[in-house]
């Protein structure tokens, strides 16, 4: 726990647009236990960043683990990370391995 998985990638998404522009599915107690990116909207910050991809699984957001979090909790955490004015970016630790 807390160790980087070998296939993981840290992606820094600058808040370059008014929305983050991703859709996620999954969370604890579902078929997809970690949140997975299912859509990246054109024109959103994630799309502008160019490094997030559909199908990637989100392991951490700003260093906070997604493990054990139910869908709404994971979604809320990501929304708050985008909304806060403390940072001008959101750091995602993602993996292509599901």
């Amino acid at each position: 726990p807390g160790l980087l998985e070998p296939t993981s990638t840290l992606v820094r998404v600058a808040k370059s647009a008014s929305t983050l522009g991703i859709a996620i599915e999954g969370g604890a107690n579902t078929r997809q236990p970690l949140p997975r990116i299912v859509t990246i909207q054109r024109g959103g910050s994630a799309h502008n960043c160019g490094q997030l991809k559909v199908g990637q699984v989100i392991l951490e957001v700003n260093g906070v683990s997604m493990r054990g979090r139910e869908h709404r909790d994971a979604a809320r955490l990501i929304a708050e990370a985008f909304k806060t004015k403390e940072r001008d970016h959101v750091d995602f630790l993602v993996t292509d391995f599901n």
Binding site: L20, A23, E25, R31, Q32, P33, A75, I78
Partner: peptide
């Protein structure tokens, strides 16, 4: 007896 082989699907949230 009912077997639970799969977990339910998740909702999708746009962020």
């Amino acid at each position: 007896r009912e077997k639970r082989l799969t977990l339910p699907p998740s909702e999708i949230t746009l962020l």
